[in-house]
Design a protein around this nucleic acid. Structure first.
Lengths: 202, 202, 202, 202
DNA sequence: TATGAATGAGCGTTCATTCAT
DNA sequence: GATGAATGAACGCTCATTCAT
């Protein structure tokens, strides 16, 4: 097969995988994680069930693909921010805003990815769960902040966990109550609370 | 049927439901959410599968019951604390410590209740998810704190969400990493962060 | 459950298994080994597919049951003959006649049991393939014959193999050509050939 | 199309079929009869799956081809021996030795050809199964032997069946027990038994 | 002619639910 | 009320065959 033909084929495969991905996300939104069956994905993608298996060896593999595809942009952005020279607080704010925006556009997928037990297995198979990675990244921000003298010398592991928890539940609540809060505003509230605490300043 | 007979009957029904609940929890711990089948619940409870349907109209209803039964003590305690005359910060700390302790002793059930998609559906069917209730309760603490002048006049809804998120992820992380942190310590860290924030105090 | 009820239940289960066995054999005859699907067995038995799994944990287990059920009478008879005090040649003749009769009434099942690769796997799982057992039994007859001085001191293993092969192919040929030879006659021909050989006697 | 072009085309087709045959046999040895899928044959042959259908109308037809191709040398040799001027007993011995040798070098193919139910169907479709042919050939030897006065006037049909059965099971046993008996030796044992029988000679 | 993606019927198996006893 | 066998729709997955390129 010519080089060109190979490229074309790769493109077609990629487009099909994307199509199946979108179909899967559609099913996910409509029927929930439990309702994500290969039959429905096939129907939603407008292909025969057997065809799914030309692109993904198993449901598991499809799940992994969904996970990676969804998480990828967020991960890339995180790495970018980490590398940037910026005060820790600003990094936190930037990342949180991005997450909230990304979440706003992807809605329920995140819920599924972070919480569905089956997906979690898959994640662990990947050996680096997204959540763990996220916490790791956040820790680095807190460590930077402490080094800069901008943050108190708190337990960075715990703090990262609490922070991520706050972000996730903010997202989920938005989903559950069907709200449409501006990401900007939510990010600001989060930062204000974590930076300054509840106590009135002296 | 006499009034007495009715009472007796109610009691028997209640005992059966409790027995089934315990069996279900046992199955849950041993086989995970995926493995919670009516067959296994029946076997573990020592009754016939069909009998389950005399006490719960469907698996869904059994799930709801498990959820309520598990969450109940936490809810009761929350109401108690709410009614107590105590500063808001102390109330927060008390509740968090209790939750973490309750979680530590119930481990996997919580994971299932908070995260399994099937359960989540059920929760939404209840129309008042535990999470929403929890947030409501927390809001009341924050409102009290603001009224007392102990807290800044922040957005109580958002703050409650972030706080609960921080608590939940703290729990889940403990589960995922198989840690055994003392509830006392975790509660203290949480409170310190939320009260005083990250910034060094002037 | 009372002793009586238990007995009754066992009887019912046994009847169901027999019914499924018969249905499976029917399917086997009509559609061949390849066509033996759980769907068809269920349909032929007049039960739902799922019901099969109340009596057999898997298709494999059903296959084993068919195998055992079919082979059992032949095995029992073999043991009986072995234990009897009878010259070796007569034992051989008796067994062959029985096999051929049993075969005549069970027709194609034997074919399936002796030859289908899937069944053979199952047999090996049983750890004692019928064929191997059959050869073992025959060997004992040849050894007896040699000890009695009735047979030449030939290699009993090889002889048993050849003898069983001759019996099996005689059966199969009957099936393939749809013949209806009397078992008696076939047994006599077999014995005559194996005892006296092809060469004219001096 | 010119006569020459036609010849060339036929040659190419023939080569392709041979290539596919070899690939199929390879798959057969590696994955067993159950694992003989068109996909794997295509991959092993280094052609596209669809191309198989340019040379064989169906899997069934491919199976037939494998069968014929494998049996062909044995058949040719049989015809040769038949035509030779040789005593019947010697012919038998020659043929048996050849079969056992051919079998030893082709091992699992034979198992598949003689025993796999799918193949068996195909054989019956051919309307003249190899087995029937083999029996026919053997009969001719026995008839010759009787005519020569070397054999008793036994029933040649039955004798041919028993003889073939003895040969086949000898082969299969070798396969099942993973033995490596010399063909020469097995052939000798077979002939000795069939010629002289079990009884001690006077 | 060669290709290989698309197809869809079919597979063995599971399990919430029903219902005759 | 208790039982547990019967049910059948649904599941993830396979693979011989077709057909547009």
């Amino acid at each position: 097969m010519s080089r060109l033909a190979k490229r074309r084929k790769e493109l077609v495969v990629s487009l099909m995988k994307d199509g199946i991905y979108e179909a899967a996300v559609r099913v996910l939104m409509e029927r929930g994680a439990e309702g994500l069956t290969m039959d429905r994905v096939a129907e939603s993608a407008g292909v025969a069930k057997g065809s799914l298996y030309n692109y993904f060896r198993s449901k598991r593999e499809l799940l992994q693909f969904i996970h990676e595809k969804t998480i990828e942009p967020a991960k890339d952005f995180l790495a970018e921010v980490r590398a940037a020279s910026m005060p820790a607080a600003e990094k936190l704010q930037t990342v949180v805003r991005m997450w909230l925006e990304h979440f706003a556009t992807n809605r329920g997928i995140f819920d599924f990815l972070f919480n569905d037990p089956r997906t979690r297995e898959v994640m662990e198979d990947c050996k680096r769960s997204s959540r763990l990675e996220g916490i790791e990244e956040l820790r680095s921000f807190f460590e930077q902040g402490i080094a800069e003298g901008a943050f108190r010398p708190i337990d960075t592991q715990r703090t990262a966990e609490m922070f991520l928890g706050a972000v996730i539940l903010t997202m989920e609540q938005q989903l559950m109550l069907n709200l449409n809060r501006p990401a900007e505003e939510s990010a600001a509230a989060l930062l204000d609370l974590f930076l300054n605490g509840l106590r009135p300043q002296a």
